[in-house]
Amino acid sequence: MTVAFHIPEIETDRLRLRLPKASDLAAHIAFRTSERSKGVGGPFDAQSSFQSLEAIIGQWHLRGYGRWMVANKVTDEPYGVVGIYHPMDWPEAEIGWSLYEAGEGKGIAHEAATATREFAYTALGWSRIVSLIMPDNVRSIRLAKRMNCRKTEAFTHPEFGALDIWVHATREAA
């Protein structure tokens, strides 16, 4: 008895959202050990990056949805991790985005998060999706506003502290 689970691939204009692979590890370590990961609770030690990639793959099996490695559609260069994040201690499923330095300033998070939202509404048939954002994460707040998210109540995580819950625009309004 083998358990098999499937991770869909999504293509956008410039990007491929795909299963993480071993060759993504160096870029993932560089992100997690740098100040760039501050908005998601970092920086972290390098050791934990392997488990982080394992967890991205594993949540697809545990939840039936998850996050992708966002890569350049042509060169396959990894740009970051975007998709639906839903650990055990989260109030609900959220669209999360973490951009590596190589993915900076090109609208890549917006392109991948928009594709993720579309996936949640169409493939999963959801009517609500949120993003949890630290109150001082200016760049993520900017992206949330650009995606027509609306800030609602705050959620206090035992480790990460206060996180604002931004509700995404409905499918009709998106």
């Binding site: 358990v3 689970f5 499937h6 991770i7 691939e9 299963l19 793959i57």
Partner: peptide, 8 residues
């Protein structure tokens, strides 16, 4: 689509 298979 990628498939991940874990044997038992």
């Amino acid at each position: 689509m990628s498939t991940v298979a874990i044997p038992a």
